[in-house]
């Protein structure tokens, strides 16, 4: 890039627009790795709980859900380190905020459901998970993420109301696969 190149007004605006678009794509590329990570984790843990619950007939296996943040957050930190370094901006901060809020709500509501007041936790979690993914898609202006979030939230809610007990865990297995697929689609879009 030359510092004294004569630019027209059109070229200058194009340069500014390209720079903003590139920044959005960099964030998308990095966020794809988080979708893949949480997708794998959600699929593996939900499937493990489903199988253990099914085989032993003990719903206590649901406590394994608490392993998700314990394993997930250190791994997410590793993914963050291996991602291409990009500067923080408003979108990346808002994305971080959305998923922190989701994690806090999911953990708090799960703990309340287990220790204080029983509630339809599968229904609640699947709705807020879909909502968080949908909002991420809106922030990143990415249709595959928006659609996946909508399918997860709305489809998952319907499924949660139709099926009973341990089979509900398969909603999260499907949700995990959907997150994983979202990550791969975004990776393919911006490789």
């Amino acid at each position: 890039m030359e510092q004294n190149k004569e630019m027209t007004a059109q070229q200058s605006l194009q340069l500014i627009s390209d720079s903003f678009n590139k920044s959005r794509k960099d964030i998308l590329r990095n966020s794809a790795n988080y979708f893949v990570l949480w997708g794998i984790l959600l699929t593996a843990i939900s499937l493990a709980i489903y199988l253990l619950w099914h085989l032993t007939d003990k719903p206590q296996w649901n406590f394994l859900w608490f392993a998700m943040p314990v394993i997930g957050y250190p791994l997410a930190a590793l993914v963050g380190k291996s991602n291409a370094p990009i500067p923080q901006n408003e979108v990346s901060k808002m994305l971080g905020g959305v998923w922190t809020v989701f994690g806090t709500f999911a953990l708090a509501l799960s703990a309340i459901a287990v220790f204080v007041v029983p509630m339809h936790i599968t229904l609640i979690i699947v709705i807020i998970l879909g909502l968080a993914e949908c909002i991420s898609g809106v922030l990143l202006r990415n249709w595959p993420i928006i659609i996946a979030g909508f399918l997860l939230g709305v489809g998952g809610a319907i499924f949660a109301l139709l099926v009973k007990s341990d089979a509900q865990l398969l909603i999260f297995t499907l949700g995990g696969i959907l997150l994983l697929a979202t990550g791969f689609i975004v990776k393919l879009q911006y490789k």
Binding site: Q3, S12, I16, F20, S23
Partner: peptide, 19 residues
């Protein structure tokens, strides 16, 4: 109104900071 300075400013305008 210089290509490189504008590119730097465009990056910094959308980021908290950049090294």
């Amino acid at each position: 109104h210089s290509e490189l300075r504008l590119a730097v400013m465009s990056i910094l305008a959308g980021a908290d900071e950049a090294d």
